[in-house]
Amino acid sequence: MNITVYCGSNPGKNPNFSLAATKLGTWIGLINKPTVFYNVDGYYESLKEQFDRMVQEEFLKLDVREMFLFSESLQEIDTFIREHS
């Protein structure tokens, strides 16, 4: 299976944890595989909006944008994983 599920983090008491999660997310984007952001309580909503803006501004191709799913729905995530397996 060639898919990544990215849950991320918040800084908590140690901001290095959030920095490490951000670096991991960057690495995931570089490996060119479908990626899921488990968007609990809209945590990644601003990132999703930025990706959409990048498409509108032609900094990101639509086919690349479609490799990223932002969802709080486990059913939607499951469907995405099955479609990209």
Rank of each mutant, 00 (worst) to 15 (best):
His84Arg: 15
Ser71Arg: 01
Arg53Trp: 08
Lys61Gln: 15
Arg82Asn: 14
Phe59Gln: 11
Phe68Lys: 09
Leu60Asn: 04
Cys7Leu: 08
Val40Cys: 02
Met1Ala: 13
Cys7Gln: 04
Lys23Asp: 03
Asn39Phe: 04
Asn14Thr: 07
Asn32Thr: 14
Asn2Leu: 15
Thr79Val: 14
Tyr43Pro: 04
Arg65Pro: 10
Leu24His: 03
Lys23Ser: 00
Gln75Arg: 14
Phe70Trp: 02
Val5Met: 10
Ser18Trp: 12
Ser71Phe: 01
Gly12Val: 00
Phe51Asn: 02
Lys48Gly: 06
Val55Ala: 10
Ser18Asn: 14
Phe59Cys: 10
Ile3Arg: 11
Ile3Lys: 12
Gly42Ala: 02
Glu45Ile: 06
Phe51Lys: 08
Gly25Thr: 01
Glu66Asn: 15
Leu69Tyr: 04
Lys48Glu: 04
Val64Ser: 06
Arg82Pro: 09
Ser46Met: 06
Met67His: 13
Asn2Glu: 13
Leu47Thr: 05
His84Lys: 14
Leu62Asp: 15
Arg82Thr: 13
Ser46Arg: 07
Val55Met: 11
Leu60Val: 00
Gly12Tyr: 03
Leu47Asn: 00
Leu62Ser: 14
Leu30Asp: 09
Asp78Tyr: 12
Asp78Val: 10
Phe37Thr: 07
Ile3Glu: 14
Leu60Gln: 02
Ile77Val: 10
Met1His: 08
Lys61Asp: 11
Pro15Gln: 07
Lys33Val: 12
Ile31Pro: 05
Asn2Ser: 15
Ile77Ser: 04
Tyr43Val: 05
Asn10Phe: 00
Lys48Gln: 12
Leu24Met: 02
Glu72Met: 02
Ser18Cys: 13
Glu58Lys: 10
Val36Phe: 13
Glu76Ala: 05
Trp27Asn: 10
Asn2Val: 15
Val5Leu: 13
Asp52Trp: 01
His84Trp: 09
Lys33Met: 14
Val36His: 10
Pro15Phe: 00
Gly29Arg: 03
Ala21Gln: 02
Leu60Met: 08
Gly8His: 03
Asn14Trp: 00
Asn39Arg: 00
Phe51Trp: 04
Lys48Ser: 08
Asp52Lys: 02
Arg53Gln: 09
Glu76Met: 07
Asp63Arg: 13
Met54Asp: 14
Ile3Phe: 12
Glu83Pro: 07
Cys7Ser: 09
Leu69Asp: 05
Met54Gln: 13
Ile3Tyr: 14
Arg82Cys: 07
Val64Met: 08
Phe17Trp: 12
Gly42Leu: 01
Ser73Leu: 04
Glu49Met: 08
Gly25Glu: 02
Phe68Arg: 07
Leu60Ser: 04
Gly25Ile: 01
Phe17Met: 15
